[in-house]
Design a binder for these strands. Structure first.
Length: 565
RNA sequence: GCGCCCGUAGCUCAGUUGGAUAGAGCACCGGAUUUCUAAUCCGGUGGUCGCAGGUUCGAAUCCUGCCGGGCGCGCCA
C-alpha cells in the first residue's frame, strides 16, 4: 500500500502484518488478518491453525510463543487459545484517528485507472419505474466510489432509444396519437399508446406488420416521418428523465442512446465478419458460441436485416474501447440479463480482442411486489417519481412535527425523503431480489438513511453552537472514545472493499456502525458546557471527524447531507 | 428439461471469502431527557443458519443430492 492518503486502521494493520510475517519468517502477503467477532478482543485477529500445521506444532502453543516474540509499536498482542488478538493502544488510536478523520482526503485513493460505468439507461417513451432506481443508485454510487479512489471515471447513460419497440410505438402513434396529450404529459401519453398497442395487437394482426415497417423506416437512416417523430419522443422523454437524475444526484458524462451507435453498426458487422465468427442461419446472422460453452448463439441481424440489442451493445463496447481504452467497463444492469452479457463477452473473446475481459456485468436483483408482477406492457407501473414524492411528503410531515422552526422545511424534506429511498436500496446486497414494501422504504428510524443524516446534522449543530476554530487538540482526552475511533478507522478499507466487490452495501453498513458509535459518543460525553475548554476542544475534534467521515460516506452513496433537520 | 441467482430470529437483512459464544434494525417488553435535536441512547425476549449427506482440527460459508422461491434459455430489450 504505497498510497499517501490516510487509511485509518490500515496503518496499524500493516504493522501487525509485518511483525507477524517476520516472526513466522514468511512474506507479508501470506498473513491475513481478520476481525475478531467479539470487539473486546481488539481490532485484528489471526488464527494460528494453518501455521501450526506447517510447523507441526500445537496452534495454542504457537500463539503463545508469537505473543511473547512480537513487539509492535502501539499495538498489544494477546492470545486466547489458538487465536492471536491485537488491540491498538488507546492513545495511539485516538492520536491517529483524531487527525485522520478530519482530513478532507480521509479514505481517498490515488489510482489513475480509467473506469467506465454504464448505469440507469431508461427506455424512451416509458416512465422510469421502481426498477430503474436500483441501477441508478448503485451505478451512481459505484461511479463516485471509484472516483474517490482516484479513478478517471466516465459515466455513461445508455438510453434505450432504439429497437423494434419504437416501431410499435410509431405504429400506435399513427393510429391513436394526440398532439395535445403529447405536449401535456409526454411520457404518460406514449405509455398509453404502447399499452394500447399490446392490447390491440392480439386481435389486429396488421399492427405487427405496421410496427415492423415503421422500424425498418426508422433504421433506414432517411429523414422520414418515422425518424422525425422518434426524435421528438426522445427529446420529450429525456426532458422528463433529467428531473429524476438530478433528484438522485445521478450525473452522466455521456448520455448516449443506443441510436448513437447506429452508423457504427455496419462497420461492426464487417469487423465481426473479418474476424470470421459470423454464420448464416435461417436468414439471420449469428455468432455461434458453442466453443465458449454457451449453447445459445448470439444473434447479430434478424432475417429482415434489422439489428438487435446485442449488435448495438457490441458496437457500443467497441466504440468505447476505441475511444477510452478503459481499464474496466462496468454495466450496472439487472441479473436477468446475465446470459446476454456472457454472450456478448464471448463474442468479443472469439474476435480475438485482448480487452473482452475488462467488460464486467454488475448484476442486481429484481424488485418484486407482493401484489404480483408489474408490467409496462400492461400499464401496471410504479413510477419512480411517485415513490420519491411519497417519501418526501412523509418526510415533510415529520420535519413539521420534530423541527417546526426549521427555516426551509421543503428542502430538508426533499433531502430526507430522497435519502431514505436511496439508502434503503443501497444497504442490501445488490444480487438479492427485493420485495418492495412501503413501510420499509418510508421508514426513518433505525438503520436508515435519515438516521445517518440525523447523526451528521447533530454534529453540524454542535459545531455550529461551538462557533470557533478547533485548536490544540489533546488526544489523551479522547482515548476513551475507542468505539468511535475504531468505527471511523474502518471507513477507508470499506470504501476500497466496496469498489473491489462493486458492492456499495459494504460502505452503507460501515456508515451505520459509525453513526451508532457516534450517537453513543455524544450521548455519553457531553461536548459543550463542560467548563473545560481543553476537553471541549478535544471533543469538538471528535465531532468534526465524525461529521467529515459521514459527509464523505453519504456523498459517495448519494444520500444528501442536510446540516439541520 | 437445461443454466444462473437466492434460502439465516415473527418481518427486513448483516455475517470480515473456512475460525472464537451466529449479529443488527423493525416489531414486542422494560428503562433513560433541568443542559449540544428522543429521527436518539441503554437493556430484555426471540435461532434445528431450507433438508440430508460429504470434505477437516473447525462449515451459515466449500462439494454432492433433494425441497422451496426468482430469473433466463436465436429473429424483444
Amino acid at each position: 500500500m504505497s498510497e499517501s492518503t490516510p487509511h485509518g486502521l490500515a496503518i496499524f494493520a500493516q504493522r501487525v502484518t509485518d511483525a507477524v510475517a517476520a516472526a513466522l519468517q514468511l512474506p507479508a502477503d501470506q498473513i491475513q488478518l481478520e476481525r475478531p467477532r467479539n470487539e473486546e478482543h481488539g481490532e485484528f485477529a489471526m488464527p494460528c491453525f494453518r501455521f501450526a500445521k506447517v510447523q507441526k506444532c500445537n496452534p495454542a502453543e504457537l500463539a503463545g510463543r508469537l505473543v511473547s516474540d512480537l513487539n509492535i509499536a502501539d499495538v498489544t498482542a494477546s492470545n486466547i487459545g489458538p487465536f492471536l488478538n491485537f488491540r491498538i493502544d488507546d492513545l495511539a488510536l485516538a492520536t491517529q484517528m483524531a487527525a485522520d478523520a478530519r482530513r478532507e482526503d480521509f479514505g481517498k485513493g490515488l489510482s489513475s485507472e480509467r473506469t467506465l460505468v454504464e448505469y440507469s439507461s431508461p427506455n424512451i417513451a416509458k416512465p422510469m419505474h421502481i426498477g430503474h432506481l436500483r441501477t441508478t443508485v448503485i451505478g451512481a454510487a459505484l461511479a463516485r466510489i471509484f472516483e474517490f479512489l482516484g479513478h478517471d471515471v466516465v459515466r455513461i447513460n445508455h438510453i434505450g432509444d432504439w429497437g423494434s419497440q419504437f416501431g410499435k410505438l410509431l405504429a400506435a402513434w399513427r393510429r391513436w396519437g394526440s398532439d395535445e396529450k403529447l405536449e401535456a404529459e409526454p411520457i404518460a401519453h406514449l405509455l398509453e399508446l404502447y399499452v394500447r398497442y399490446h392490447a390491440e395487437e392480439k386481435t389486429d394482426p396488421s399492427l405487427d406488420a405496421a410496427a415492423k415497417d415503421e422500424f425498418l423506416a426508422l433504421e433506414s437512416g432517411e429523414e422520414n416521418d418515422a425518424r422525425r417523430d422518434w426524435k421528438h419522443f426522445t427529446e420529450l422523454s429525456l426532458g422528463e428523465f433529467k428531473t429524476t437524475f438530478e433528484r438522485l444526484d445521478a450525473r452522466f458524462d455521456l448520455i448516449r442512446g443506443e441510436s448513437w451507435y447506429e452508423d457504427k453498426l455496419e462497420d461492426l458487422v464487417q469487423w465481426l465478419d473479418a474476424a470470421g465468427v459470423l454464420e448464416w442461419n435461417d436468414g439471420a446472422i449469428i455468432v455461434d458460441l458453442e466453443s465458449e460453452g454457451i449453447s445459445t448463439p448470439c444473434l447479430v441481424k434478424t432475417s429482415r436485416g434489422t439489428t438487435l440489442y446485442a449488435t448495438r451493445d457490441l458496437a457500443a463496447a467497441k466504440s468505447r474501447w476505441d475511444e477510452f481504452h478503459f481499464d474496466r467497463c462496468l454495466y450496472v444492469v439487472g441479473a436477468e440479463q446475465s446470459l446476454h452479457f456472457k454472450q456478448f463477452k464471448a463474442v468479443l473473446k472469439r474476435c480475438g480482442t485482448d480487452w473482452w475481459n475488462r467488460i464486467e456485468h454488475i448484476p442486481f436483483g429484481l424488485v418484486r411486489f407482493t401484489e404480483g408482477k408489474l408490467s409496462t406492457r400492461e400499464g401496471r407501473v410504479l413510477s419512480l417519481q411517485d415513490v420519491l414524492d411519497r417519501a418526501v411528503e412523509l418526510a415533510r410531515e415529520i420535519v413539521e412535527a420534530k423541527n417546526p422552526d426549521h427555516v426551509d422545511k421543503d428542502w430538508v424534506a426533499e433531502q430526507v425523503g430522497i435519502g431514505a429511498v436511496v439508502f434503503h436500496d443501497l444497504k442490501h446486497q445488490r444480487q438479492k431480489d427485493v420485495v418492495f414494501n412501503w413501510n420499509e422504504v418510508l421508514s426513518f428510524e433505525g438503520d436508515t438513511g435519515p438516521y445517518l443524516q440525523y447523526t451528521h446534522a447533530r454534529c453540524c449543530s454542535i459545531l455550529r453552537k461551538a462557533d470557533r476554530q478547533i485548536t490544540d487538540v489533546d488526544p489523551a482526552l479522547l482515548a476513551d472514545a475507542r468505539d468511535l475511533w475504531v468505527a471511523l478507522g474502518r471507513f477507508p478499507a470499506a470504501v476500497r472493499e466496496a469498489a473491489e466487490k462493486r458492492e456499495p452495501m459494504l460502505l452503507a453498513q460501515t456508515l451505520l456502525k459509525i453513526a451508532a458509535a457516534g450517537n453513543s459518543f455524544y450521548r455519553e460525553k457531553r461536548v459543550l458546557g463542560n467548563d473545560d475548554p481543553v476537553l471541549e476542544n478535544a471533543r469538538l475534534a471528535a465531532i468534526d471527524g465524525l461529521r467529515n467521515t459521514l459527509a464523505h460516506g453519504l456523498m459517495l452513496l448519494g444520500v444528501p447531507t442536510p446540516e439541520e433537520m
